[in-house]
Design a protein around this nucleic acid. Sequence first.
DNA 1: ATGGAGTTGTGATG
DNA 2: CATCACAACTCCAT
Length: 461
Amino acid sequence: MKLPLSLLNSTMPSGSGSLVWFRKGLRIHDNPALEYASRGSNYVYPLFVIDPHYMEPDPNAFSPGSTRAGINRIHFLLESLHDLDLNLKKLGSRLLVLKGEPSQVLIHCLKEWDVKKLCFEYDTDPYYQALDNRVKNYASTAGIEVFSPVSHTLFNPADIIEKNGGRPPLNYQSFLKLAGEPPWASSPLSVDLSSIPPVGDVGSCEILQVPTLKELGYVEKDQDEFTPFRGGESEALRRLRESLSDKIPWNVDDKLLAAWREARTGYPWIDAIMVQLRKWGWMHHLARHCVACFLTRGDLFVHWEKGRDVFERLLIDSDWAINNGNWLWLSCSSFFYQYNRIYSPTSFGRKYDPNGNYIRHFLPVLKDMPKEYIYEPWTAPLSVQTKAKCIIGRDYPKPVVSHDSASKECRRKMREAYALNQKLKGLVSEEDLKKLGSKLDEDEDEGQEPNPRRKRQKLIN
DNA sequence: ATGGAGTTGTGATG
DNA sequence: CATCACAACTCCAT
């Protein structure tokens, strides 16, 4: 299919043009080759070459697909290309698809188009190395700049081997030693492109749209007959976000957060600790545990990051890594998982300080409260409160939550979050599992509980 | 697949 | 103070 002329900017004045040759890194974000091409170019040709070597049907192959690639792999690639094209279009460009032996197609394009820079991701595959050499040779004779960054791998494999005296390291320890700091550790990843220069004049080249399987000569099948893994940058980023997202549905409750932060929870043990934090900038390690647990998974179910920020600001021994680590730990977000072990905001302190001296010190308003009531002053009869010169609800707040019901609710939410996490942990979505489930039910005897883990196992093996 | 370990849980019981 | 039930987490070694 010929491209409509309007998209081709054939009237574009000649200037610096760049060609981005897409092969493996079929993405817009974090793509140094694309970024380099887009910077300082008047127009950019994003090109993908359909290589018959990988894409043409081979009826004699041992499974459906081409000589080199099974049908799933080709399908996945087409989905990725389709998504790449969509994403390029969002930025004012599009994917140019050509067909043929890639190095020949590339050289032809470089001859046809006004291109000053050729940009493509470095590839270690022997097949691509050979292709790349042919293309690079031509580019150098034609005076075209070649930019071929390492971005498919985090490190440059050639560097690692060279550092090891020409031999590849044979275990992970020595690899790490040789690799050292990754080059991007001290600098931010590439920026997000907000636009890409338009496509230039393509001359006489026959530009294709991203083909369908059918157009490539394959028999169309239903989606669920293919691998449950969908191709494309958008899907990849969605999976990444899903995997990084918090499975725990923390409350957004600034009132509860403020009550905790301002030592107004109504639980003297908690509030005394928070006063000490504010006044001294230091508390005992276990006191930190108590208030962190209370704010997050124990009672208030407020996001651990909120508490972390308060600690970060007020602790004199504040340490970014330790602080984050401890909050992740205490909130059962990572490292520690026994969310049923909840510190009691009353009995934990009572165990070590039955008289409540700590509370009396940091919350003087409660200093005359009898020890029987000092951890739960709202239970003190009014006569006792009057005698202690501390009326609950006036001189000292009532509890913001009831620990019994709040902690039960927290346990329930944690249980659900963990269960959901279990389900999502596999690389297969719920929807995929359902499909797979019905498929398995057809093959299997009945009576098996629909256990996602079990079914995922089947899928993987 | 399974069992043991895992900074630092609570509350009842003896 | 030790032990147990509670209800059941992940990670790791086997």
